[in-house]
Nucleic acid binder design. Sequence first.
DNA 1: ATACATTTTGAACAATGTTCATTTTCAACC
DNA 2: GGTTGAAAATGAACATTGTTCAAAATGTAT
Lengths: 192, 192
Amino acid sequence: MIETARGIIAANGLRSLKVRDVAEAADCSIGSVYNEFGDFDGLILTVNRETVQALTARLVAVPAEDPVRQLHGLAEAYLTFAADHANLLRSLFEHRMEDDRPFPEDILKMVMQAFALMHEPMVRLLPDRKPEEVALLARMMFSAVHGIISLGLEERMVAVPPEKLRQQLAQFVDTHLAGLGIAVDKPRDGEV
Amino acid sequence: MIETARGIIAANGLRSLKVRDVAEAADCSIGSVYNEFGDFDGLILTVNRETVQALTARLVAVPAEDPVRQLHGLAEAYLTFAADHANLLRSLFEHRMEDDRPFPEDILKMVMQAFALMHEPMVRLLPDRKPEEVALLARMMFSAVHGIISLGLEERMVAVPPEKLRQQLAQFVDTHLAGLGIAVDKPRDGEV
DNA sequence: ATACATTTTGAACAATGTTCATTTTCAACC
DNA sequence: GGTTGAAAATGAACATTGTTCAAAATGTAT
């Protein structure tokens, strides 16, 4: 059932998700969807929850030996995930809830955890700066990467080919690290 | 009528925009809304069009004497606009059309024009690089700024206070320019 | 004043999220 | 095995909202 919903969102975007379609595909009644998830938002949030989990899993799997490589790896993992699951990520970041119900605590926490994954390598690279300051820098860098990727993949606008985006992202990370006073002269794998 | 629609979106988000509300507020029939805008998307797009125009106007108004100051000004103008009209900007970037109708050409063009405003000062700062390369750098920088601002202002997540965001943005621009090999040692107005 | 064009109207329709009384399922107990 | 009561599943009915379109209202030219 979640599987079906995710399939529909991934294939045609959140807007095309319909309760009736999910019920039919799952071979159960409409009411059952409501018994399971409470309401439509509940279903969407369940899919979104799994999306963050999948994303976080990818990010956590990035090797952590060399902090610079790790940052590149995180950015690239994010890009790969975003390119493969553009609609799922959009659902996560763009879905607004009914009324003004609060954003679920656990999803928020997981997103923050994903954000925080850039924190550790940044601390290693900037041992002299205050932790709070580094936390801000890390969040900023994550946000910047997010912006580059999400606008870059936006089909409505002129979408950049993922391969090209990958190069740009790597360049961005390098440039930004250089700006922070971190030397990155040795080219890494797969860089042009 | 557009005014009403914009008001509703700005106040409560795109989701709460209803044809009937607009018709009632404009003191006309539902049908008239359709005669005027074709369909619901037409109304939304009209509001979005004016949003890009307003944003572009703000960005164009940024002084262009010193390129570094100009870049800071552009980022700050974007932030100010985003903070003042968060829901309108979201409507512009997040609204998906029915089916797969194409994104209107003119809006796309205006967004690109806004993107391109970072191009000129970047060319001035990097006279030795190839124009296409600078265009990519400019778009990347714009996207990064967009990401920092849109995630930063996201109330669902932990929103950063605009004042704090302003500082971070300025720091980001400085860092990035430094990474590009551009010296920025003189503090600018209003910087902490 | 008449005839034709244009605009406006809002009732009816279609799509879709939501509810809830009813039915079905199923386990526990005698 | 039959009875019973809780739990789960059902889908018809409802509420909201985008959309259509025949009819009415308005405007204009002759």
